[in-house]
Deep mutational scan, measured.
Amino acid sequence: EIHIRTNGEEQARKVYKMLAKRNYDVKIEQHNGQWVVTAS
């Protein structure tokens, strides 16, 4: 499982799309105001 911390919604969405293209199961979560993308 991969966790990627991003500094904002826009970046989180870019990372989300990139990983989704590679057939990862991707989730975006917010932790303490930080956007974290989780891929498995």
Rank of each mutant, 00 (worst) to 15 (best):
E1S: 12
K21Y: 06
V37G: 00
I28D: 00
G33P: 01
W35Q: 00
K21D: 15
E9T: 04
N23G: 15
V37A: 00
E1W: 14
A39M: 12
K27N: 05
Q34V: 13
V26R: 01
Y24K: 06
S40M: 09
E9Y: 15
Q11F: 12
V15D: 02
I28H: 00
A20E: 10
I2Y: 06
K17Q: 14
Q30T: 07
V36G: 03
G33S: 05
K14T: 05
H3S: 11
S40V: 11
N7T: 12
A39Q: 03
A20H: 06
G33L: 03
N32G: 09
H3M: 13
I4R: 02
K14A: 09
D25L: 12
D25A: 09
T38F: 07
Q34Y: 15
E1A: 13
V36H: 07
I2R: 04
E1F: 14
A39D: 03
N7R: 11
V37N: 00
V36F: 12
N23K: 07
E10D: 09
V37W: 00
V15G: 00
V36N: 03
H31S: 10
E1K: 14
T38G: 02
I4S: 02
H31D: 10
K27I: 07
H31I: 15
T38V: 14
H31T: 09
N32D: 10
K27H: 07
K14G: 03
Q34G: 08
E29H: 07
I4V: 07
E9Q: 07
W35P: 00
V15N: 02
T6N: 03
M18S: 09
R5H: 12
K17E: 15
G33V: 02
I4A: 02
I28Y: 03
H3E: 12
R5T: 12
V15K: 03
T6E: 02
I28Q: 01
W35D: 00
V26W: 02
L19I: 02
A20F: 06
H3T: 14
I28V: 06
K17H: 11
I28R: 00
N32I: 03
E1T: 14
R5F: 14
E29A: 09
I4T: 02
T6Y: 10
Y24S: 05
K14Q: 08
R13P: 00
E9N: 03
K27R: 10
Q30F: 14
A39L: 14
W35R: 01
G8M: 10
E1R: 13
D25N: 14
A39W: 12
A39P: 02
T38Q: 04
Q30G: 04
N23D: 07
I28E: 00
A39H: 05
A20M: 13
W35A: 01
R13S: 04
N7A: 12
K27D: 03
A12I: 02
H3R: 14
K17S: 09
T6H: 04
Q11G: 05
N32H: 07
A20D: 04
I2N: 02
A39I: 15
K27E: 04
Q11P: 03
I2D: 01
Y24I: 07
H31E: 11
N23T: 04
N32R: 05
A12K: 01
R5N: 05
K21R: 10
E10A: 14
H3I: 15
A20P: 01
Y24D: 03
Y24A: 05
V37Q: 00
K27S: 07
E29W: 13
T38D: 01
K27Q: 07
K21E: 14
I2A: 02
T6I: 12
S40L: 10
R5D: 03
N32E: 10
H3Y: 13
K21A: 14
D25Y: 11
I28K: 01
T38A: 04
G33T: 04
M18G: 05
Y24N: 04
A12G: 02
E29R: 07
R22S: 09
Y16T: 04
A20Y: 06
V26D: 00
I4M: 04
V36L: 10
I4Y: 12
A20K: 15
A12W: 03
N23M: 11
V26A: 05
L19P: 01
H3W: 11
T6S: 05
N32Q: 07
H3N: 08
L19S: 00
V36R: 04
M18V: 08
K14F: 08
N7P: 06
Y16R: 06
Y24R: 06
E9I: 13
R22G: 08
I4D: 01
K14I: 09
R13D: 04
Q11N: 06
Y16V: 09
D25W: 10
Y24Q: 05
A12Q: 01
N23E: 05
Q30H: 11
E10N: 08
S40H: 10
V15L: 14
H31R: 12
D25V: 13
I28P: 00
E10K: 13
R13M: 08
E10F: 07
H3L: 13
N32L: 06
G8L: 12
Q34M: 11
N32P: 02
E29N: 07
N23Y: 15
G8A: 09
H31Q: 11
V36Q: 05
R22I: 09
Q30D: 05
M18F: 14
G8I: 14
R13I: 08
I4N: 01
V26P: 05
H31F: 12
K27W: 07
V37F: 01
R13C: 15
D25T: 13
H31A: 08
E9K: 09
Q30W: 10
R22T: 07
N7D: 10
E10Q: 10
N32S: 06
E1D: 09
E10L: 12
T6Q: 02
H3A: 08
L19Q: 00
R5Y: 15
K17A: 13
Y24P: 04
H31G: 04
T6F: 15
Q34W: 13
K21Q: 13
Q34F: 14
V26M: 02
K21N: 09
R5E: 06
D25E: 11
Y16K: 07
Q11V: 08
I4L: 05
R5K: 10
A20W: 05
Q11W: 13
V37M: 01
M18R: 06
D25Q: 13
K14M: 08
G33D: 06
N7W: 11
K17L: 12
R13Q: 06
Q30M: 10
Y16D: 05
R13E: 05
E1G: 09
R13T: 05
M18D: 12
W35T: 01
W35F: 05
G33R: 03
V36D: 03
H3Q: 12
M18I: 11
N7L: 10
R5W: 14
E1H: 15
A39E: 02
K27F: 06
A39G: 07
A12S: 02
Y24E: 03
V26E: 00
M18N: 08
R13A: 04
W35G: 00
N23P: 03
L19R: 00
I2E: 02
K17G: 07
Y16P: 03
N23F: 15
W35E: 00
M18L: 10
E29G: 06
I2Q: 02
L19K: 01
R5G: 04
E1N: 09
G8T: 15
Y16I: 07
H31V: 14
K21M: 12
E29K: 07
L19G: 01
I2H: 05
E10P: 06
Q11E: 13
R22Y: 14
Y24W: 12
G8P: 01
V36Y: 13
K14E: 09
W35I: 01
N23V: 04
G33M: 04
T38M: 09
Q11D: 10
E10Y: 08
Q11A: 11
T38L: 10
G33A: 04
V36S: 05
V15R: 03
V37D: 00
V26S: 02
V37E: 00
V15E: 03
R5M: 12
Y24F: 11
S40A: 08
Y16F: 10
V36I: 13
M18H: 10
T38N: 03
V26F: 01
I4W: 08
T38S: 07
R22P: 02
N32V: 03
I28W: 01
I28S: 01
E29L: 08
R22W: 15
L19F: 08
E1P: 10
T38K: 08
N32W: 05
G8V: 11
D25M: 13
Q34P: 00
E9F: 14
E29F: 14
G8R: 12
I28L: 08
E10T: 09
V26K: 01
